[in-house]
């Protein structure tokens, strides 16, 4: 039972890609806003930094790094489960 759930949770979805998706979309929207839709008023508000542009670019880079990480080190089902972990279901705790 325990081993089954362990392998399934490893295989179903990779949280790194979901984080990259959210950050990537945010980054893209902010970058477009920063390049095309930043008014002088916006600039004055944020201490003359085009914060949408910079934050957007940073988020795109971040998303890229996470995708790369997920590609280079894909999730694997662990085959060498620690010895004590295999018996966790055998122990009935607390009774």
């Amino acid at each position: 039972m325990a081993d089954e759930s362990r392998s399934r949770s490893a295989g179903v979805f990779d949280i790194r890609l979901i984080i990259a998706l959210l950050m990537g979309v945010y980054g893209a929207v902010l970058t477009v806003l920063g390049i095309g839709f930043t008014t002088d008023e916006d600039m004055a508000k944020s201490a003359d930094i085009n914060i949408n542009l910079w934050a957007g670019l940073a988020m795109l880079v971040f998303a890229g790094v996470f995708v790369l990480w997920a590609q280079l080190r894909p999730l694997t089902v662990p085959d060498n489960v620690e010895s004590d972990a295999t018996e966790e279901e055998a122990v009935e705790p607390g009774h």
Partner: peptide
């Protein structure tokens, strides 16, 4: 409210 433009504000 004082510092962030729309976009960054949403985030």
């Amino acid at each position: 409210r004082d510092l962030l433009p729309n976009g960054m504000l949403g985030i």
